[in-house]
C-alpha cells in the first residue's frame, strides 16, 4: 500500500478473493501504485472523512475515485454513499459502485444517492479484468476532477 496522502484510488471490498482479483487486474493495467484498500464501510468512511487512523489526511487531497462494493460489513455501501454525497467536503469524490448485485432497487437507490457509475462485476474473469482496467484508466487518467480549495 502506498503513502496514504497520495492515494488516487480507494478500493472498498470485503471479499478477499474479489479483492485479490481486483488488485491483480489493476496491477496488470499498471494502475495499482496508489491504491488504498478498505475492508468494510467504517474503514472507508474513516479514510474519506479523515478520521481515526486517517486523521492526518487532508480533505484537499481526495482520491480520484472510490471503487465501492455495496454489501459490506458494519456500514453498508449505500450508507457510505449517502454520507459521502451528503457532505460538502466529500460530495465531489467520484464513486463507482462495483458489485455483484444487478437488482434494480440497488441500481436505482445508488444513482438516487448520487453515485457516478454502477458496474456489475462480471463472472468471466477476462471481462472482469477488462472492466477494472477500463474503470481505472477512465477515472485515474482521463477524468478531470474539480480543483479542491478546501
Amino acid at each position: 500500500m502506498s503513502d496514504p496522502t497520495s492515494v488516487e484510488l480507494l478500493l472498498v471490498e470485503d471479499n478477499p478473493q474479489d479483492l485479490e482479483l481486483t488488485l491483480r487486474a489493476l496491477r496488470k493495467a499498471n494502475l495499482a501504485a496508489r491504491v488504498h484498500v478498505a475492508r468494510d464501510g467504517v474503514e472507508a468512511a474513516e479514510f474519506l472523512f479523515c478520521e481515526g487512523p486517517h486523521a492526518t489526511r487532508q480533505f484537499s487531497r481526495p482520491p480520484k475515485v472510490v471503487l465501492l462494493d455495496l454489501k459490506l460489513p458494519k456500514l453498508d455501501g449505500l450508507e457510505v454513499i449517502k454520507r459521502v454525497k451528503g457532505d460538502p467536503r466529500t460530495k465531489f469524490i467520484p464513486i463507482v459502485v462495483l458489485t455483484s448485485s444487478r437488482e434494480q432497487r440497488d441500481v436505482v437507490e445508488s444513482y438516487q444517492l448520487g453515485v457516478n457509475s454502477y458496474i456489475v462485476k462480471p463472472v468471466n474473469s477476462d471481462h472482469f479484468s477488462a472492466a477494472v482496467r477500463e474503470l481505472g484508466t477512465y477515472w485515474l487518467l482521463l477524468n478531470q476532477p474539480p480543483k479542491t480549495n478546501a
Binding site: 471479499n15 478473493q17 474479489d18 482479483l21 491483480r24 454489501k71 458489485t99 455483484s100 448485485s101 444487478r102 437488482e103 462485476k121 462480471p122 463472472v123 468471466n124 474473469s125 477476462d126 472482469f128
Partner: peptide
C-alpha cells in the same frame, strides 16, 4: 442468490485464469 452466488463463481473463474 444474485449477490452471494456470483462471488464464489468469480473466484473459481478468476483463480483458474490466474
Amino acid at each position: 442468490v444474485s449477490h452471494d452466488l456470483r462471488a464464489p463463481l468469480r473466484a473459481i473463474d478468476g483463480y483458474s485464469q490466474a
